[in-house]
């Protein structure tokens, strides 16, 4: 436990002590700001809801989340520090978990920064706090799953940029395919896409519905990718 925490703390420190952490947060807030202006949710007469803003959020997160996790494992391989980690008394799972948790915490902090919009809305209007909660829960769950996938991508290479692309492109394709293709196909393919339809599942949350199968889907996806990351890290010992 202590060693998992040690990894997590070091990872957070690395994020907050390097430009990357700030670039990611700044980029995220900037994109959000642009979306807020563009959707004009703060114009008079509009309903006090963040739904329109956050409609775009999953797409933004496909880019942002892999940037948080891109160097987590790849950089250990590139610099050789993986050798001192893997010869210290902690299991590969503890190492991956520590890094994953750091990614999740960073994501939560970043997401927390957008609460300022909610606060502003509460000051000037009357937002539905229950719906806002569901919205944030949905985003947090997406963060859980995307971060796990980002860490997984980072374990596949020793190049951060490659890790970012390996994280971003498949997530984007996946989100697009499952969102736009799901209506175009029939039969088992449709059933499959409905299951993995990240955006579709998020839309339920953004309407204020906390769906238990959605919660299970995101958490299971996160667990799957944490598990796969451990397997990749283990298998890299044999090379």
């Amino acid at each position: 436990m202590r060693n998992t925490m040690a990894i997590m703390q070091r990872e957070l420190l690395a994020l907050f002590c390097s430009p990357i952490g700030y670039i990611v947060i700044a980029g995220f807030l900037l994109i959000n700001g642009v979306i807020v202006l563009w959707t004009g949710v703060f114009s008079p007469g509009k309903a006090a809801t963040l739904r329109d803003v956050f409609f775009w959020m999953p797409w933004v997160l496909t880019v942002i989340v892999p940037a948080i996790s891109m160097r987590m494992i790849s950089e250990e391989y590139r610099s050789g520090t993986i050798e001192s980690l893997m010869t210290a008394p902690l299991s590969d799972f503890q190492m991956v978990l520590g890094k994953y948790l750091a990614g999740v915490i960073f994501f939560a902090i970043m997401l927390g920064a957008t609460l300022v919009y909610l606060v502003l809305m509460a000051a000037y209007g009357n937002p539905d706090l229950g719906a806002a909660f569901a919205l944030y829960l949905g985003l947090f769950l997406i963060g859980l799953a995307f971060t796990a996938y980002g860490v997984f991508a980072s374990s596949l290479t020793s190049n951060q940029v490659v890790a970012w692309i390996l994280g971003w492109v498949p997530l984007l394709l996946f989100a697009c395919v499952s969102y736009f293709v799901v209506g175009q196909v029939e039969g088992w393919l449709r059933a499959l896409f409905q299951q993995v339809n990240v955006i579709g599942r998020f839309e339920a949350f953004s309407r204020g519905l906390v769906r238990i199968d959605g919660v299970v889907f995101f958490i299971a996806t996160a667990a799957l990718f944490v598990f796969l990351t451990v397997k990749v890290v283990e298998s890299r010992r044999w090379r």
Partner: peptide
Amino acid sequence: YLPESVPLYPE
């Protein structure tokens, strides 16, 4: 263990 390349975190 002291690895050959002495890997450390520069930051």
